[in-house]
Design a protein around this nucleic acid. Sequence first.
DNA 1: GCATACATACCAACTAGTTGGTATGTTGCT
DNA 2: AGCAACATACCAACTAGTTGGTATGTATGC
Lengths: 220, 220
Amino acid sequence: MAITAASSDARAKLLSAGMRLIRTHGFTATTVDELCDDARVTKGAFFHHFVSKEAFGVAAAEHWSLTTGALFARAQYHAASDPLDRVLAYIDLRRALLRGAIADFTCVAGTMVQDTWESSPAIRAACDASISEHAQTLEADIAAAKRKYGIAGAWSASSLALHTQAVLQGAFVLAKAKGDAAVAIDSVDHLRRYIELLFKPATLKTGRTRMDKGRRRMKR
Amino acid sequence: MAITAASSDARAKLLSAGMRLIRTHGFTATTVDELCDDARVTKGAFFHHFVSKEAFGVAAAEHWSLTTGALFARAQYHAASDPLDRVLAYIDLRRALLRGAIADFTCVAGTMVQDTWESSPAIRAACDASISEHAQTLEADIAAAKRKYGIAGAWSASSLALHTQAVLQGAFVLAKAKGDAAVAIDSVDHLRRYIELLFKPATLKTGRTRMDKGRRRMKR
DNA sequence: GCATACATACCAACTAGTTGGTATGTTGCT
DNA sequence: AGCAACATACCAACTAGTTGGTATGTATGC
């Protein structure tokens, strides 16, 4: 797929418009016309770059994976030497991102999978890959923390990594229902507290005190 | 809204069809024709009972609230004398319900709000009411448990009640993405462990041992 | 004789996708 | 260098089918 000089301005603009529109209306409710209007591109250009609306959906999930993957890869939370600190710093970053309009912080893959999981196996798989691969970037740090602090709970690093994503996805749903990010922030705070508690006995032995570090506003 | 003698067989059939269809396709992707076909009712009947598709959505959220409200009201988890036991029994019930087809255990309100929160304030509000009122039925037990065990965490009973709903909603999203309920069960297990840990110091003082009670399969 | 609970037939607007075209490269041969 | 052959990126207008919604009719019970 040699990328030529002006390799499709239109494709990039459509994907960018897709991120916005899918997050606000979901995938099914986002029409091809709407996508084209928003991207200031014609329908011909749309079907030149994507053989169908479904193919666009798959490309949108992959685009989401790439852009968010790059964002998190270059974030500073990897800097901490302690693996548990890296996990907690990730949670703090996710909490800090819950700002501005709801459509600006919610997850394209999570939103899209809700109205496509039954009708489009291809989109479902692409969304699953996006979410699961992102979770996997956490898994190594969680596993390292378990090893370092000798935690032998009945839970696996991978299940905890996926749980963080479940909490975030659920927090987005509640934020949409309430039209307010506050409830999502509260939920992420509960998630942070959970991880602190999971590692608390071990870190106390080691003489660490991390509790309430990074804690901010707690409403109600 | 006086309920007349044979108060609309059609209305009930449409709402029942709506529960199924909204859970599988979402609200926007569910068409009025599909609803009518599934309920074996004509379009005339649909618009006789609901002034618009949006009004049907609001009615669907209210119907969901009523039916699930009744289900949980008559469940036995209220029986335990200890409030913490009641909260954990609720979690166990939610875990036990994660069986069969995905569309059979997911939440109508949570699914519907995802593709309507931006376009329909009325449906958004109805879904919020459904989720928030359900969370409130947990709040009293959580508050009682906090009081009984003298827990003074930086979290409120209401925020924890909403957090349980966020975890469940997120678990549904991941289950849809993976096409498998296992990931949702794992997440609910993490939620149960969190609540156990929140109350652990206090219950140990009191001589309770609840840990790992009710624990079942833990995959991976 | 009049309201309620439907049924049938229909419509204007919108839907994803198609068609046939153009403008601008890029490549390979001489 | 120069030109034919082809590829890419796009566009405007169209189509076949679907959408939520309506207009009008009818059957039944009080």
